[in-house]
Every structure is written in C-alpha cells, then in structure tokens.
C-alpha cells in the first residue's frame, strides 16, 4: 500500500469515530426503550415512574414528562432533544457524509436512506406506534453494522469507525448498570439483560435464574458475551493498539496503562459484595472517560486543538 493510501485526516477519523458512536447509540437506545416500553405494559405505576427516572438520567433527558410514553417519544423522535434517536441518526448522517470517502458505498447508502426515512418521521406519526419505529431503527442499524463489517477494508478508517461503535457500547452499558444499581431493585436485572439483548445469552451461559449478582458478573466480565464490559474493553484495546502501530514512534503515544490495568482486574472473579462492585463501576467509568480523552489527544488533536477552536480575530492598524 502506498503512503498516500494510509492518510486519514484527523477530521475524517473524528467523523468515523462519531459515526460509529451515533450508529451504536441509535441502535442501543432503540433496544433499551423498546424493552422498557414493552415491560411497562401490564406493569405497575412504581415501575413506570422509576424507569422514567432511570432513562432520563441514562440518556440525559432534561424535561419533565408525565409518562414513560412521552419520555420515549421525546427520546426517539424529537429533533430538539440532543440525545434523541432522531438526533443521533442525523449526526450519524452528517458524519458519514463528512467521511464519505472513507466508508464503503454500501454502508453509505444504508445511512443515507435511513436518514432520509427518519427525517421524514414526525412526532404524531409514531405517537402510538413507537414499536414500529424501534424495529426499523434496530433493523437498519444492525444492517449497517453488518455492511460495514462485510464491505470495509480493515484499514485505519475501519478501526476508527469500529472504535466508535465499541466506545459507545461501553458507554451505554456502564451508564445503564450504574443507574440500575442506584435504584437497588433486584427485579430490574431481567429488564437490563433484555435491554442489551443479553437475557437469553445469560440463561445459556449460566444455567441459573437471573439474580443481581449473577447479572453483574455476566454483564461485567463474561468473556463469551460480546457486549460485556470485559469483552468490549478487550476489543477496544486491540483497536487502539492497531491504531497506535500506525503512528510514528517519535510521537511517543502509547496505550494508557488504564486500559490494561482494568482488563487485568476483570480477569479475576468479582467481589461478591455489591458495594465493592459499585466502586469498581465508578472506577471503570473514570477509566472510560480518560480513554475518551486519550483518543482526542492522540488521533484527533491536530484538529480539536487547532486554531478554529479559538476566536478568529483580525488586526488592522493605521
């Protein structure tokens, strides 16, 4: 491969990273909201109130709404809510467009069409039919991921996209677990497992009924469950190593010790006491934020630290 082929603009890398994050966010949110909306049917008011609170926190929804329905609607289709699925899809589209020359035609087509469709949906149209909306989003996003996997070269562009997907997956899972732990309702863990598509996987892997500690074990360190924190961190570690290999050694960037440290820690059995697990989760969360910062410093910084973040001024003197 020629040296020219390996150029990835800092902006393109950042766009790919965010494209991955927004695609993953759209899919995860659709799944999480879908599961909760289903569970609410025939459930009691306490559950609805609690879940509303939890989802508001997990997805930074800052308005007061009277029902979970309304909350879900806002988080799904309201373009003025910066954490809504619709907003995510639009940002995914913009980032895809900006990185158009780095992604495959098939992947681009899918995002282009998905965007076109979502941007035509209205709040009223899905007021009572969010399930349909979620299944469209889930299907499209899963298709997109499949297309990206099957049609893109495993070059730096792919690694940045893939990094975005995995970072977002880790981000949402950590938020969800931490928030669910806060409300301390053991029954919620079935909902959590379902929300990340892991209920059946849990039953198959553990052969035991759902318990809080069992769920935490499974979600945090189950190697064979691809969405677990450990599995996700291992993938991130591989991607980052791959990307760092492409950098000039003179720049002196290396994998921050945080990541291998956390991974090593998760190789050992978790504490049986939930209080300690909470401490671990907080620690994982700060490592995650630190890593997010590291991606900027290392790969995107020629851009984010560049001039245009500072005011442009002109001097004319007479």
């Amino acid at each position: 491969m020629t040296s020219r082929g390996s150029i990835v603009l800092a902006r393109t890398a950042e766009s790919l990273y965010w494209l991955g994050r927004y695609m993953e966010r759209s899919e995860s949110m659709a799944r999480i909201l879908d599961v909760h909306l289903h569970e609410i049917i025939g459930s009691n008011d306490d559950n609805e109130a609690r879940w509303s609170d939890q989802m508001s926190t997990v997805f930074s929804f800052e308005r007061n709404v009277e029902s979970f329905d309304k909350l879900a609607l806002g988080l799904s289709l309201d373009e003025t809510v910066p954490s809504s699925i619709r907003y995510s899809i639009e940002r995914a589209y913009e980032n895809a467009k900006s990185a158009r020359d780095a992604i495959s035609l098939e992947y681009w087509e899918l995002i282009n069409v998905a965007f076109g469709r979502v941007s035509r949906y209205t709040l009223d149209q899905f007021g009572h039919g969010l399930f349909t909306f979620y299944s469209i989003i889930k299907e499209r996003c899963a298709q997109g991921r499949g297309l990206a996997v099957s049609t893109m070269n495993r070059d730096a562009a792919w690694h940045f996209l893939n990094l975005g997907y995995n970072v977002e997956q880790l981000d949402i899972l950590l938020r969800l677990i931490i928030e669910k732990r806060r409300s301390k309702i053991p029954e919620d863990w079935v909902v959590v497992l379902r929300s990340i598509g892991g209920h059946e996987a849990f039953l198959r892997a553990t052969n035991s009924p759902v318990s809080e500690i069992g769920s935490l074990n499974f979600l945090i360190q189950e190697r064979i469950f691809p969405r677990s924190i450990l599995a996700t961190m291992l993938r991130i570690s591989n991607i980052v190593n791959e990307l760092l290999r492409g950098l000039d050694e003179s720049q002196g960037f290396s994998l921050p010790p945080e990541l291998p440290r956390q991974i090593a820690r998760l190789e050992y059995p978790l504490a049986s006491e939930t209080g300690e697990i909470d401490l671990l989760l907080d620690d994982l969360w700060s490592s995650h934020l630190l890593m997010c910062n590291f991606y900027y410093e290392t790969f995107f910084s020629p851009l984010s630290k560049s001039n245009f973040n500072y005011p442009l001024r002109s001097e004319v003197w007479r």
Binding site: Y310, P311, L312, R313, S314, E315, V316, W317, R318
Partner: peptide, 8 residues
C-alpha cells in the same frame, strides 16, 4: 494597510 493580520 501598514499591518494586517489574522490570528487565533
């Protein structure tokens, strides 16, 4: 213009 500049 004796001095003209753009800066960040």
């Amino acid at each position: 213009t004796p001095f003209r500049g753009i800066y960040f």
